[in-house]
Amino acid sequence: MAHLRAFHKIKDLRDRERTEQEKQHQSRVETFEQKATQLYEVLKEKEEAEQSFHQTLSKRTIQAMTFIQHQQYIERLEERIDSLQPEVQDARQAMYNSQEKLTDAYVEVKKFEKLIEQKQKKHQKWVKDEENKQMDDLSMRQFLNFQSR
């Protein structure tokens, strides 16, 4: 059974690694959600600003300075969107990579659980076979003792 203890220790190590991967993955998911929310908010702000400006334009005439200020505001929002999109993509890719590592960690733990289970079944079968052999031997002795009387 010392051999089995070694497998348990390895499984425990893999289990700790899996737990660490879960924490990393959760951190990556939170980062992605944060970046995606930022991008969504800026896109929403841009859309609302454009709608508001178009409504104002349709109702009345505006001064050139207001038009220029609005265009500059929209440009700043577009620059912010352009800077956030790669950040969101990077965060998404990091999240996917951590998901793969987490999946691999789960598979490793499962492998060792199956291996331990198989070893335990094999050991139990061996114990049962040994008991049967001893019982057969004991039965044979009793039979021979009974015959020799």
Results as ranks from 00 to 15, higher is better:
residue 2 A to L: 03
residue 2 A to D: 05
residue 2 A to R: 04
residue 4 L to V: 08
residue 6 A to R: 12
residue 8 H to P: 01
residue 15 D to F: 11
residue 16 R to L: 07
residue 17 E to K: 13
residue 17 E to S: 09
residue 21 Q to Y: 10
residue 22 E to D: 10
residue 24 Q to S: 09
residue 24 Q to P: 01
residue 25 H to N: 13
residue 26 Q to H: 13
residue 28 R to Y: 02
residue 29 V to F: 06
residue 32 F to Q: 07
residue 34 Q to A: 11
residue 35 K to P: 01
residue 35 K to Q: 15
residue 36 A to C: 00
residue 36 A to F: 03
residue 36 A to E: 05
residue 39 L to I: 03
residue 39 L to R: 10
residue 47 E to K: 12
residue 47 E to R: 10
residue 49 A to Q: 02
residue 50 E to M: 06
residue 52 S to F: 13
residue 54 H to F: 09
residue 55 Q to M: 10
residue 56 T to K: 15
residue 59 K to T: 06
residue 59 K to V: 03
residue 64 A to R: 14
residue 66 T to M: 05
residue 67 F to G: 09
residue 69 Q to Y: 02
residue 69 Q to D: 13
residue 75 E to Y: 06
residue 76 R to E: 13
residue 77 L to Q: 14
residue 77 L to M: 15
residue 78 E to P: 04
residue 79 E to F: 03
residue 79 E to I: 07
residue 80 R to H: 14
residue 82 D to F: 05
residue 82 D to C: 02
residue 86 P to L: 04
residue 89 Q to T: 10
residue 91 A to C: 08
residue 92 R to T: 03
residue 94 A to K: 15
residue 95 M to Y: 05
residue 95 M to D: 03
residue 96 Y to R: 13
residue 97 N to C: 02
residue 98 S to E: 15
residue 100 E to A: 07
residue 100 E to C: 07
residue 101 K to D: 14
residue 102 L to C: 07
residue 103 T to C: 02
residue 105 A to D: 04
residue 108 E to N: 13
residue 110 K to N: 06
residue 111 K to W: 07
residue 116 I to F: 04
residue 117 E to G: 14
residue 118 Q to F: 09
residue 119 K to H: 12
residue 119 K to N: 05
residue 119 K to P: 00
residue 123 H to M: 10
residue 126 W to M: 08
residue 129 D to Q: 13
residue 130 E to G: 06
residue 130 E to N: 10
residue 130 E to K: 12
residue 131 E to Q: 07
residue 133 K to G: 01
residue 134 Q to T: 04
residue 134 Q to W: 03
residue 134 Q to R: 13
residue 134 Q to I: 02
residue 136 D to Q: 15
residue 138 L to M: 11
residue 141 R to Y: 09
residue 141 R to D: 07
residue 141 R to W: 02
residue 141 R to A: 06
residue 142 Q to A: 08
residue 143 F to A: 10
residue 144 L to E: 11
residue 145 N to A: 15
residue 146 F to V: 00
residue 146 F to D: 12
